[in-house]
């Protein structure tokens, strides 16, 4: 069973606000699922990690220009903006 403190630590890393009730339920659900994940300990060792087929996922690192119209729409979709900028709370 993972601890309540651990759930709270992960929630903070994940940038999630959880209510007291959610934290409690999360503790139980995560514990059940993580216990199930332990099945992998039985799996044979393999040197070869695999994601998708290598070779098809590479491209040149290049900037593809987006049309101004789309760019404006993207900015317009943000909750808080000024001119053509997205506004955030001050960080420093």
């Amino acid at each position: 069973m993972i601890t309540k403190e651990e759930v709270e630590r992960i929630a903070k890393l994940a940038r999630l606000e959880l209510t007291e009730k959610e934290t409690e339920k999360m503790q139980k659900d995560l514990s059940d699922i993580l216990d199930y994940f332990d099945l992998l300990k039985k799996a044979p060792k393999s040197e070869k990690a695999s994601s998708q087929k290598p070779g098809i996922c590479t491209r040149k690192d290049e900037v593809v220009a987006q049309s101004r119209e789309v760019a404006e729409k993207l900015v317009a979709a943000s909750p808080d903006k000024e001119d053509s900028y997205i506004k955030v709370k001050s960080i420093l």
Binding site: L40, S46, S50, S51
Partner: peptide, 9 residues
């Protein structure tokens, strides 16, 4: 990491 290995299998 373990899951990626198993994915290979």
């Amino acid at each position: 990491k373990k899951a990626q290995e198993v994915r290979g299998l």
